[in-house]
Simulated assay, not measured.
Amino acid sequence: MLEMEFKPKKKIDDKITINSLKTITEFEQYVMKLSHTRNLLEITTIHLSCTELEEVPNLDHFPNLQFLYLDNNQIKKIPELSYLPKLKCLDLENNCISKIENLENLKHLNHLDLSSNQIEYIEGLDDLVNLEFLTLSENKINRINGLNNLQSLKYLMLDCNEISKIENLKGLENLREITLDFNKFENINYSCYSESLERLYLQFNHIKEFTDLPYFPNLRVLYLNYNEISNISKLFSLKKLEILYLNHNRLKDISNLQNLVSLQELVLGDNNISDLSALKTLKKLRTLKTYNNPIKNNLELVK
């Protein structure tokens, strides 16, 4: 695989060194020089990270491009990229983009990173049927939607947004992981179903209760630490749960955890728990952390 690196003082190949690249003109001049010494059709990866670009340069000289890194720039708009039909990875992290657009022809796109931008709505993704990794962290999104056609999606990162409800996961039959840390959750309602979901991260929210738990029958990892939870009675149905983080909440009663027979790792630190006897039934439990609790009866784990 041939790669092009555009970074300060980074040698591109054995003939050309780019000290800085801050304008489209500089990039075009570089491509012109490169075309005299290299076959541009062989290039599959371009790095244009941290170059202060305000727009995406024309890349139609690279029709076989598969990996494009444009992170940490000042790009405001996603341009038309239909001339890159083989693109698999597009990284636009930490730019100034406010709208997801012009991606409909990227049928082979597998990895899309739009974190740390100014996006408010999830849209323009319907045609990305091969997308597996979607990162939209650190934006201004307040609702999960616009994902129903992404049947290949496995990993969805939505941490550091303004979301308050888990919803609209129908059709995501391959979804394995959702990250929703640092959002605006106060309550967890039964509003969605995902048979494939295995890992759910809801750390650092304001969750106080579970009106009902979404139906995640194959959930194996659940992070609920740094919330305001006092009642965990709704967790009893998570029979396949293996890892559970509940530290930094307001728990007193953990008797319902006795039903989580698959638990292997449990973190309960910084709560108000005094009785651990319910955990004696958890035969698979190997890691237990209970720091900063007024515990009256310790539980010895068989290592």
Rank of each mutant, 00 (worst) to 15 (best):
M1A: 03
M4K: 15
E5Q: 09
E5D: 05
K9M: 06
K10F: 04
K10H: 14
I18G: 07
I24C: 01
Q29E: 15
Y30T: 04
V31M: 04
L34R: 15
H36N: 14
T37L: 07
T44M: 09
I46Y: 14
N58K: 09
D60C: 11
N72E: 11
K76L: 02
I78S: 04
L81K: 04
Y83R: 09
L84A: 01
K86C: 02
K88R: 12
K88A: 07
D91V: 15
L92N: 06
L92T: 08
E93C: 01
N94W: 11
I97M: 03
S98F: 02
N105G: 02
N105P: 08
L109M: 03
L112R: 10
S115Q: 05
S116D: 10
S116P: 05
Y121Q: 10
G124W: 02
D127L: 07
N130W: 08
L136R: 01
L136I: 00
L136W: 01
E138D: 05
I144M: 00
N145Y: 03
N148W: 00
N148D: 11
L153Y: 11
L153M: 06
Y155Q: 05
D159G: 09
C160I: 04
N161I: 02
I163S: 03
S164F: 02
E167M: 06
G171N: 06
G171V: 04
R176N: 15
L180C: 10
D181M: 10
D181V: 06
F182M: 04
K184H: 14
K184L: 14
I188L: 00
Y190N: 11
L200G: 03
L202V: 05
H206S: 15
K208T: 11
F210V: 06
T211S: 14
L213A: 00
R220L: 05
L222V: 00
I229Q: 07
F236E: 12
L241H: 10
L241N: 01
L244D: 10
Y245N: 07
L246Q: 07
L246K: 08
L251D: 11
K252S: 15
D253I: 00
D253E: 01
I254F: 08
I254P: 12
L257N: 08
L257T: 00
L260C: 11
L260H: 14
L260G: 09
L266V: 06
V267N: 12
V267F: 13
L268H: 13
I273P: 14
I273E: 06
S277A: 07
A278N: 07
T287F: 04
L288M: 11
L288F: 12
K296I: 07
K296F: 03
N298I: 13
E300R: 10
L301A: 11
